[in-house]
Write a protein that binds this DNA or RNA. Structure first.
Length: 393
DNA sequence: GACACGTGGAG
DNA sequence: TCTCCAAGTGT
């Protein structure tokens, strides 16, 4: 154990954990901070302290807590990928009501599943979730594989999510690595490489493994795992961490060096391109024409408005179908921001007074305006249609 | 390693 | 308004 701890403390070739500067030197001479006072964080007590803190001061009443049902744990972990707790709670409860177990999910069609994910984002998660359910029914006799390594072979489940499921459902000692853990570790161990960089991520994973390896066999892995995330979410927060409330503050490198707001170091950001499109809101007899988005791709599997590069393309497509494009009214435009581009949307409302497109073309569907609640709409499309419905009323 | 993939909350 | 980024994974 001492060897492992020492190896970690010393930092490895190319790693960014720093050797403590020699004693008598000062890191910030103007502040008079004696570097000799800075201790390399000890590894062994970390996990037990976090575990005990979780039991005392962590979160215990989130909807997916208090169960060891892998299905519920899995669902929550997928929904929580890159998504804040507050956004997930409602979706989680509605989803479970409709699909209470893995068998009901596997038996459903993707079109039955997507409405329960619409608005949550990252729709490949829902498609993979559905595929995963069917795979578990078909190849794992309806129950989750017994180890994190096996769980991680399933669609939509990477190393961290697999570890979380195994830790919460089985108590397996596999570490997770998410935004919370990343922030806590970067600060506590003074890891200052850019997050996302391969070497930094490798160092973080290795740190996570060493902590678990150094912990006593009595460690409650579920509580430790939860505690790590609770710590990052409620104490070691991004903006202004509450170091006074932190159970591991004494050895935290960031706190000792006043670098709480510098760590973790974000990776450099790229310019976000702008895109434009026009969307057709074709209304006929209280119904609107929707078009299913191809997957993979943005909004894959959801039902959106027919989309065109610009107003001219929209108009010629209308005319080609015998629709009076000249009667289309331009509605208020809106800007929708994605991670990797910004989309300017110009919606055009066309109310057909005579029967048009009696049969919806392939990949399209007439949807009653009063059934949009249950439709799998992208967020901005829902916004557009809500505006239209209130206008027509 | 780079990029695709959503949405909304916080500061 | 604008930036950052949240219980990441797949290609």
């Amino acid at each position: 154990m001492a060897a492992a701890k020492n190896k970690h403390a010393a930092g490895r070739d190319g790693g960014s954990v720093r050797h403590p500067p020699p004693p008598q030197q000062t890191l910030f001479p103007e502040d008079g901070v004696a570097v000799g006072d800075i201790q390399v964080p000890p590894l062994e007590p970390f996990a037990p302290i976090v575990m005990q803190w979780q039991k005392r001061a962590g979160r215990h009443h989130l909807p997916w807590q208090g169960t060891r049902d892998p299905y519920r744990i899995w669902l929550s972990e997928i929904m929580l990928q890159q998504t804040q707790v507050s956004a997930v709670i409602g979706y989680y409860q509605r989803f479970l009501e409709r699909f209470p177990d893995i068998r009901s999910l596997a038996a459903a069609s993707q079109d039955e599943v997507m409405p329960y994910w619409a608005g949550l984002g990252y729709y490949a998660r829902a498609r993979n979730l559905h595929r995963c359910a069917q795979e578990i029914i078909a190849h794992w006799n309806g129950s989750f594989p017994p180890t994190a390594e096996q769980i991680s072979t399933l669609p939509g489940i990477g190393r961290s999510t697999a570890a979380a499921i195994a830790a919460f459902a089985y108590g397996e000692r596999s570490p997770i690595m998410d935004g919370n853990v990343r922030r806590v570790f970067c600060r506590y161990f003074g890891i200052d490489g850019p997050t996302g960089k391969t070497s930094t991520e490798a160092e973080l994973w290795e740190t996570a493994e060493r902590i678990v390896a150094a912990a006593p066999a009595s460690l409650d892995m579920a509580a430790y795992t939860q505690g790590l995330m609770d710590l990052g979410a409620t104490v070691c927060t991004r903006g202004m961490p509450d170091c006074a409330a932190c159970p591991v503050n004494t050895h935290c490198i960031a706190r000792q060096t006043g670098r709480q707001t510098e760590l973790p170091v974000p990776r450099q950001k790229k310019a976000v391109p702008e895109r434009h499109c026009s969307m057709l809101v074709l209304v006929r007899e209280g119904q609107v024409l929707l078009e299913q988005r191809p997957s993979p791709g943005i909004w894959g599997g959801l039902w959106s408005l027919p989309q065109f590069d610009d107003a001219e393309a929209l108009a010629s497509a209308c005319e080609a179908q015998g629709l009076p494009a000249a009667n289309a009214q331009r509605m208020a435009g809106l800007l929708h921001v994605f991670t990797h581009f910004r989309l300017h949307i110009d919606p055009w409302l066309l109310q057909a007074t005579v029967p048009v497109l009696q049969e919806a073309p392939a990949g399209k569907r007439w949807t009653p305006l009063d059934a949009l609640d249950q439709a799998a709409l992208p967020a901005p499309v829902r916004k557009i249609l809500e505006g239209i419905v209130s206008t027509l009323r």
